[in-house]
Design a protein around this nucleic acid. Structure first.
Length: 283
DNA sequence: CTGAAATCCTGGAAGC
DNA sequence: TGCTTCCAGGATTTCA
C-alpha cells in the first residue's frame, strides 16, 4: 500500500479541492471495500463541509461540519484521482469512469475526487470526530514517526526485550505507525542493521540512531512526492519519483550503493513479506 | 508472548 | 497472441 509518505502526498494533493468545500454529492458504487461501509454513508456525507484533512499513520481523516470524521485507508492499491477545476478557470472536464471507481465525491467547487481501488484492501468509515482516536483502527496505533512522541528513549524502550526480528518490529504499527515494507527496508539499510537481527539485541545507541534515520527517510520521500510503484499515483494523477532513490527495495541482485561495496542486494522472505538488504553493509 | 500462515482481492509480469 | 503461476505497498485473524 501507499505508506506514510504516499498517504501524506495524497492528503496534500486533496487539500486544495476538498478542504473548506462541501460534498455536493457522494456516489457510493458498492456496499463495501475491505469492510462494509457504515450505514447510509452517502447520505451522511452529502451536504457536509470538509473542515480539515488530517493524516494519522496511513489513514486520511476528513473532519466534517456534522461532527463526524470520514476515515479513508488506501489499502494496497487505492488511489484518489482529482479532476475538475476547483478555481473555475477552465471547463469542468472529468475523465470517463473506470473499473474499480468505488466512491466518487463531487464537491461544490466543481472538483471531483474518485476513489479507485482494484484490490479493495482499502477502507472507509465514519466516526465521531470528538472520539476519533478511540476508533478500533486508530487506538492500536503507536506514535507518529514525525511527531514529538516518537523519541530515542521511546524507541529504545519499545525494542528492549523483543525477540522478534527488527524488520517485523518496525513493521508493527503498534510500535511505530506508518512504516511499510519499502521504508522499513530502506531504513535498515541506512542504519546498517541486518533485518533478521532480534530487536532486543540491538545496542541502545544503534536503536536510538534509528529515530533520525526513520525521520530522514520519510521526510525525503514526502519531499519527493511519495514513491510510485505499480498502483500508486499522486492525488493529481502524476507519478511520484522517490522510487529512483531506493537503495535496496526491489533491487535484488543489483550492486549495493555503499561506498566501495558492490555486493549484490539480497532478497529474503520474512513473515511472508519480501525483505531486501545488503549482506555486507547490514549486520 | 512469538510468529508463521491464511485471508481479503485484482492485475501485471514472467514463464512456458 | 494463449494459459498458468507468482507476486504485490496492508493488516487482521487464525493457528501452532
Amino acid at each position: 500500500m501507499p505508506e506514510l509518505p504516499e498517504v501524506e502526498t495524497v492528503r496534500r494533493g486533496l487539500v486544495p479541492s476538498m478542504e473548506g468545500a462541501v460534498i455536493a454529492r457522494a456516489q457510493v458504487n458498492r456496499p463495501d471495500l475491505r469492510w462494509p461501509f457504515p450505514d447510509r454513508m452517502a447520505e451522511r456525507l452529502q451536504g457536509r463541509r470538509v473542515l480539515s484533512l488530517r493524516r494519522r499513520s496511513k489513514y486520511i481523516l476528513a473532519d466534517l461540519d456534522s461532527g463526524e470524521t470520514l476515515l479513508i485507508h488506501l489499502g494496497m492499491s487505492g488511489r484518489m484521482l482529482v479532476s475538475g477545476d476547483p478555481l473555475g478557470q477552465f471547463a469542468h472536464v472529468h475523465p470517463a469512469p473506470e473499473k474499480h471507481d468505488h466512491v466518487v465525491f463531487n464537491m461544490d467547487n466543481g472538483a471531483r475526487i474518485t476513489f479507485n481501488d482494484p484490490r479493495r484492501f482499502g477502507a472507509m468509515d465514519l466516526l465521531e470526530t470528538a472520539t476519533a482516536e478511540n476508533h478500533k483502527l486508530l487506538s492500536v496505533l503507536g506514535p507518529e514517526p514525525l511527531g514529538n512522541e516518537f523519541s530515542e528513549s521511546y524507541l529504545v524502550a519499545a525494542l528492549k526485550g523483543k525477540n522478534t526480528p527488527i524488520k517485523s518490529a518496525l513493521l508493527d504499527q503498534g510500535i511505530i505507525a506508518g512504516l511499510g515494507n519499502i521504508y522499513v527496508c530502506e531504513t535498515l539499510y541506512r542504519a546498517g542493521i541486518h533485518p533478521k537481527r532480534k530487536a532486543g539485541q540491538i545496542a541502545d545507541a544503534r536503536a536510538a540512531a534509528l529515530v533520525a534515520i526513520i525521520r530522514d527517510v520519510l521526510k525525503e520521500a514526502i519531499e519527493a512526492g511519495g514513491s510510485s510503484l505499480k498502483d500508486f499515483r499522486r492525488a493529481d494523477g502524476e507519478l511520484g519519483y522517490f522510487q529512483h532513490r531506493f537503495d535496496v527495495y526491489d533491487r535484488e541482485g543489483q550492486p549495493c550503493h555503499g561506498d566501495g561495496c558492490k555486493t549484490a542486494i539480497r532478497r529474503i522472505v520474512q513473515s511472508g513479506r519480501s525483505t531486501f538488504y545488503c549482506p555486507t553493509c547490514q549486520r
